[in-house]
Design a protein around this nucleic acid. Sequence first.
RNA 1: GCCCGGGUGGCGGAAUGGCAUACGCGGGGGACUUAAAAUCCCCUGUCCUUAACGGGACGUGUGGGUUCGACUCCCACCCCGGGCACCA
Length: 830
Amino acid sequence: MAEYDPQAIEAKWQKNWEEQRAFEADPDPDRAKYYVLEMLPYPSGTLHMGHMRNYTIGDVVARYRRMRGFNVVHPMGWDAFGLPAENAAIQRGIHPREWTLGNVVEFKKVCGRFGFSYDWRREIATCDAEYYHWNQWIFLRMLERDLAYRKKSRVNWCPKCATVLANEQVVNGCCWRHEDTPVEVREIEQWFFRITRYAEELLKDLDGLAEGWPERVVTMQRNWIGKSAGARVRFAVAELAGKTVEVFTTRIDTIYGAAAVILAPGHPLVAELLAGLPARAEAEAKLAQMKQASAKAEDLATAEKTGFATGRHAVNPFNGEKLPIWVGNFVLMEYGTGAVMAVPAHDQRDFEFCTKYKLPIPIVIQPTDGAPLSAETLKEASTEYGKLVNSGPYTGLTSEEAIRRMTADAEARGFGRGEITFRLRDWGISRQRYWGTPIPVIYCQRDGIVPVPDDQLPVRLPEKVAISGQGQSPLAGVPEFVNVKCPKCGGAARRETDTMDTFVDSSWYFLRYLDPHNSKKPFEPELARYWFPVDQYIGGIVHAILHLLYSRFLCKVLRDLGFVQASEPFTRLFTQGLVLKGGTAMSKSKGNVVGAMEMAVKYGADTGRVYTLFAAPPEKDMEWSEQSVEGCARFLKRVHRLMERHAPSVRAHAAGMGDLASASEKEKVLLRKTHQTLRRATNDFETRWHFNSAIALIMELVNEIHAQEPFGDAVRPAVLKEVLELLTLMLAPMAPHIAEELWEMLGHNGGLIQASWPQYRAEFAAEEQVEIVAQINGKVRAKIVVEVGLDEDSLAARAMGDPKVAEAIRGKQIVKKIVVPDKLVNIVVR
RNA sequence: GCCCGGGUGGCGGAAUGGCAUACGCGGGGGACUUAAAAUCCCCUGUCCUUAACGGGACGUGUGGGUUCGACUCCCACCCCGGGCACCA
């Protein structure tokens, strides 16, 4: 007997699949397509089992769908631009491309070793000019439509690196490379994508994703977009004729309760207000201090509210009341108008601020039920809707009515209007980095911002660059790159030296897979018409907002450019759990990784796959256990031995179940267990993706086959072959190599890779007898075995005939009998 | 603070409102073996009771509720994990 040898088996079948190009998929109008995709990986150094879980899940789905007859496209590629490559370059003195492509080679090797069924003809790397050419092309189309624009904005700045950092490179308010250096806020010119133009649609289309996306991801996106309906109201500055300040409020009904108008420290009006005032110098010092404060979100949220009065006043347009204008650290320039009216009685932040600075706290909303509010006893703001008081002509209205009428009146009287505001901000895509897509614009003294003409694309990244991690974009130090002629006037001009955020790369790659080598367009719309959208997307919850939102945005942009028809890129989204070791997520930096290649070498890919599927349902986090890995290895060995024992005697026979009437008892048991397993496993594959319980079921089936051994003459070869074939087919998506081997042992010439998922047969799965639970007052008192389908009365009679039941109910009054056919009898007695 | 997810044996986990703990790990015992490994078989929630076979009670974070019957549904709360966070 040959021992199960995963190394040999896996190499053999991987070669076989490659030779028959088993995973190459092309459009076929006669077959239903299925696009399954795992999130584009960043090819970092070490691949561990945390990564492999994601791809294993995707591969099981891809293989299962193929077995169900779908034309499955399952591509893979590399998110190859990014900072780690630049840092590696600095640390090791090698070019980022070299480092990245070296990792890609490793990554591909591991993917192959795990038997992932990718169509490698479609492989892309975002750092190839062949790919980023089309980033630039899309950028230019967006520029034409005013979807890309340049403006000054606040960014994270590390003084030690002397460069801008992405939000994700800010760790605890400090630079990720200088952990003791707080990030500063600076204002610089940057390129933006106008994602806010799609805010309403991005929000509305979430409704359509509720079916196929995890609820929490939909909720997170909804909150992130943060739509809020309110009004914009203009206040005149009392001391400066013609000057006004606009505030945004969702509670215009509380405007008679305003105690002040508060501006963000960065508000453009602040300087004008302070000009000419005696306390100006002092105020400006306070202002500078506020602007220096930590930009960290948690700090912002918990920092004590501070502010100062400017000495100027704003006129409440509703009642002419003069309100002091303050500057407050809690007012955000980025949201609304950068100015708020402070209504301390009905907003908690305003309450804290006004209490601290001893501003009045007038009450203008009384609750419709409960005790009325009084200024003396108010401990916190009352933010509920209610009835208006002390509000001039609006007194007595409900909040809802007041909001409607006051908004209309403000508009009629010309000092305000209703407005929808979003929390979502435009996407800053400029990075002062080398290893990314060059932004294809040129700055000309005469012509200003000039797009690089399409026929001059791609703007290639120069290879020879000094990457120091210091100062500005390294590209600025390459004169051949920077100094160009203006495409319009031919005069001397400078090329943009910033590169694009790598999230641009990953926001449309799933379309490039469909036509990866097109040199005329980003992709052929006809191909997208067949394959797109992605039917099943699989990845980590980490990308719940950024990547998934950007991809949705670019999909809509490409739709409006006429390239795709779908408005949403991912019909279904699956977010898999983390792989933990020692309680924390596997990561190289924490040193708690189990290497993917080591795993494959020690146990084989199938064991690695089966274990990651078996340890927990795929959406949950799982804790790595080496001992459980061994359990899975044992299981596969056991299956292999089972086949070695029986394949020789069945391989010459055709599989067939015959009919039940002539079946022996052992045959019935085997067929029943097999078809029950198939029924439940199919359900697990189709609906819940609970591969852990699918594997458990198959283990049970194997145990049952063991329990029925030896078979002797009681099990005919055709029946046994049927059982073993179904077992093999069920194993195929999860442990594809050993399944192919078992299939061959069973006498098949053609590969399992062409086989279909089997259909279970109800007549074989059906039990002849069932065990019925007999309960007294809901407690189990006996179990009786009866034939299936026994009617309620007979079942009740049989239960009561059981000695234990009879004993329990003797002398008691029967109140009620509950009978569930084929399940239980519950007798309620008193 | 707000929004998700979760809490079941020693561990990972399983259960359309109907036998709680399937399957696997670990542990214990046995078979095979000169021995070990590998393999195969049996046992393995807690407590009480019995010489034993067996019998009984309790048991899915806590407290209530609905129901003939609750891990599952409802209400309140506790704990753990994650996300968002001065959004006017």
